[in-house]
Computed example of a mutant assay.
Amino acid sequence: MNWRVGMGYDVHQLASGYRLWVGGIEIPFEKGSVGHSDGDVLIHAICDALLGAANLRDIGYHFPDTDPSLKGIDSKILLEKTMALLRSHAYEVGNIDSTICLQLPKINPFIPNMQTALSGVMKLDLSQISIKATTTEKMGFVGTGEGISAYATVLIYKV
């Protein structure tokens, strides 16, 4: 079997007047993620990891922030298109391991809903999607509440 590993990273500024979308769900908070799309940092990191593992470039190549048709798009649509592209190259996902870095709000209670949302879009079993959350102990742009970041590692294989 042809196994491949990919790693993705994304970061977005947090600001008032935006909604906070993480892992395909909206999280109530006074700030939201600034982005050309809905700014879902976790989905963007997962897309980059999947595309990288399959050697299909990156999310900005496939979904550029210069494309007006993508303005405000639901990142779940980008993930769905990424999965279709991956599967069109005969790849399937073994598992995803991801980490969201955010000082506030605490998102641990939302992780099961994120897993459910992502598994539905990706057509994967819940057990294939690991999501963890951490803070940066009040250090850096995440710690001061200026931004959010996410990391994702994926294992894919040729079918």
Results as ranks from 00 to 15, higher is better:
residue 5 V to W: 13
residue 145 G to W: 09
residue 59 I to S: 09
residue 82 T to M: 09
residue 77 I to R: 04
residue 124 L to C: 04
residue 19 R to K: 14
residue 134 T to G: 05
residue 143 G to I: 15
residue 121 V to N: 03
residue 137 E to G: 15
residue 124 L to H: 10
residue 71 K to N: 06
residue 8 G to W: 01
residue 50 L to F: 08
residue 44 H to M: 07
residue 80 E to T: 08
residue 132 K to E: 13
residue 20 L to D: 03
residue 94 G to R: 10
residue 74 D to K: 05
residue 101 C to Y: 00
residue 136 T to N: 13
residue 126 L to S: 08
residue 133 A to F: 03
residue 145 G to E: 13
residue 7 M to Q: 10
residue 57 R to K: 13
residue 136 T to L: 08
residue 97 D to R: 05
residue 38 D to G: 06
residue 153 T to K: 10
residue 47 C to Y: 01
residue 141 F to T: 09
residue 19 R to Y: 02
residue 123 K to W: 13
residue 123 K to H: 07
residue 47 C to H: 04
residue 75 S to H: 06
residue 46 I to W: 00
residue 97 D to C: 10
residue 151 Y to A: 03
residue 5 V to L: 11
residue 106 K to H: 07
residue 56 L to P: 14
residue 30 E to G: 09
residue 80 E to W: 06
residue 102 L to N: 00
residue 34 V to N: 13
residue 103 Q to A: 00
residue 135 T to R: 13
residue 46 I to E: 00
residue 151 Y to K: 02
residue 130 S to V: 12
residue 133 A to G: 05
residue 16 S to A: 15
residue 65 D to T: 14
residue 38 D to Y: 04
residue 47 C to S: 15
residue 81 K to R: 15
residue 72 G to F: 11
residue 140 G to M: 15
residue 10 D to I: 04
residue 147 G to L: 12
residue 115 Q to I: 15
residue 141 F to R: 14
residue 76 K to W: 01
residue 111 I to H: 10
residue 35 G to M: 04
residue 154 V to W: 00
residue 96 I to L: 06
residue 30 E to V: 04
residue 147 G to K: 10
residue 149 S to Q: 08
residue 150 A to V: 01
residue 7 M to K: 14
residue 89 H to T: 15
residue 82 T to V: 12
residue 117 A to D: 02
residue 53 A to W: 13
residue 149 S to F: 02
residue 57 R to F: 09
residue 106 K to L: 09
residue 1 M to E: 06
residue 40 D to T: 03
residue 4 R to I: 06
residue 26 E to T: 10
residue 29 F to V: 09
residue 154 V to K: 01
residue 18 Y to H: 12
residue 80 E to C: 12
residue 71 K to Q: 09
residue 135 T to D: 15
residue 117 A to F: 01
residue 9 Y to C: 14
residue 97 D to M: 08
residue 4 R to N: 13
residue 157 Y to G: 01
residue 150 A to S: 01
residue 44 H to C: 05
residue 153 T to S: 08
residue 40 D to N: 05
residue 51 L to S: 08
residue 64 P to C: 07
residue 71 K to R: 14
residue 138 K to M: 12
residue 12 H to V: 13
residue 154 V to D: 00
residue 143 G to A: 12
residue 61 Y to G: 12
residue 28 P to V: 03
residue 81 K to S: 06
residue 144 T to E: 12
residue 68 P to H: 13
residue 14 L to D: 15
residue 85 L to W: 10
residue 35 G to C: 02
residue 110 F to M: 07
residue 62 H to M: 06
residue 105 P to E: 00
residue 47 C to P: 04
residue 116 T to K: 15
residue 38 D to K: 07
residue 117 A to G: 06
residue 136 T to C: 06
residue 141 F to P: 11
residue 42 L to P: 03
residue 35 G to I: 05
residue 6 G to K: 03
residue 75 S to I: 02
residue 109 P to N: 08
residue 126 L to Q: 11
residue 28 P to E: 05
